[in-house]
Design a binder for these strands. Structure first.
Lengths: 193, 193
DNA sequence: ATAACTCGTTCACTTAAGTTAAGTAATGAA
DNA sequence: TTCATTACTTAACTTAAGTGAACGAGTTAT
């Protein structure tokens, strides 16, 4: 697991052995059981998550209904907005598979960043990259229909369709579970012809 | 205009007079006429934009149709994904009002960042904040209907509805111009009752 | 001044998503 | 095992967005 982390980091900066052990000494790895809720609505957390193995999702409860808006899988990072804005969380984060996460605290992070300017650089690069990616994803969502979104997902993250319950996928695609069922039946019908 | 910039920066870091003049000496301000295209599809640009006054928009041309996905107005920043990923641009950026922009080059930026670690810090903070904001916007979009999105925009950015053509607003809301017209008529009808 | 465009709106029609309800299969707890 | 709950699908009906066409108002070009 440590190596998966260092491989990831090496895409942004190169670490000396000392820096690697400084990072490991923070003891950030955590194994989390499926179903664990990592963050609740209203909480004021300072934790960021990096998924080494497994899957976590973010969801809102609006009018008593769960609305899933994102999934984070292997080598993906989530810093909830409440951590950045220092406000109570608008949403929940839960673990939908037994997972291995790297859980960091924004205070510890700030400390690391000021001790090792390299980390600051990595954080900037990473968040710039994630911002660019998020905007592209948003643009694709805006410019396509539910059916196109589903087909697009099938291309880009086929694993998600296997590992995630349909009703969570549906709200991730911005539609109701019944519509997702129908839409898939429609596609199958087309394929047959 | 310089003061608007420094006020903005002061939300993230504090600058000495020397640093301020170092920044000004880069001569980044640019006045741009309405209609100017700042970035074209396929181009490999290194420019980022910060809007001091005016409005710019990003749009794709898909199947010969313009799809507007974002507007950036006063005190908002855009670094196109092609700058981050060093790939040809997927979209266009154009200026929809006479504007005053701060246009920076990613090479110059990198130089500033390494010369003044403070800038690096500001860039990290800013992009983390923008990422959090973008994710919230995306979540809101996913979890609401076109009508709700319009009403939401009316609350959050009432200026946009005034200054931007309807057909651009429509695709920004993920619908066709005809649907936006109808939707507005529907809302007016409801208000009357 | 006139013609050609663009923009916004409206209308009739089509298509697809939302809603409500029902049924079956799978999962979990007692 | 049985009972209860949850997940997924299907269907009938409603609602709203997409489509194609037409219109008037305002703009630009000739």
């Amino acid at each position: 697991m440590e190596n998966r982390l260092f491989d990831f980091i090496s895409k942004y900066i190169s670490l000396t052995e000392d820096e690697k052990s400084a990072l490991l000494s923070l003891d950030l790895f955590r194994t989390v059981k499926k179903g664990t809720i990592l963050l609740k609505e209203g909480q004021q957390s300072k934790e960021s998550y990096f998924v080494l193995k497994g899957c976590i999702r973010t969801y809102y409860i609006l009018d008593g209904e769960e609305k899933t808006t994102a999934f984070y899988t292997e080598m993906e990072a989530l810093t909830p907005p409440c951590v950045i804005n220092k406000t109570p969380s608008e949403y929940y984060v839960s673990c939908i598979e037994d997972s291995i996460l790297l859980v960091s605290n924004s205070d510890t992070e700030a400390e690391m960043n000021s001790k090792f300017p390299k980390f600051e650089l990595m954080c900037r690069k990473l968040s710039e990259e994630l911002l660019a990616k998020e905007r592209i994803d948003f643009d694709e969502f805006k410019t396509s229909s539910p059916e196109e979104r589903y087909l697009n997902l099938l291309q880009k993250r086929p694993d998600l369709i296997q590992r995630v319950p349909q009703h969570q996928l549906a709200s991730y695609l911005g539609i109701k579970p019944q519509s997702l069922s129908r839409l898939r039946a429609r596609i199958l019908e087309k394929d047959k012809r």
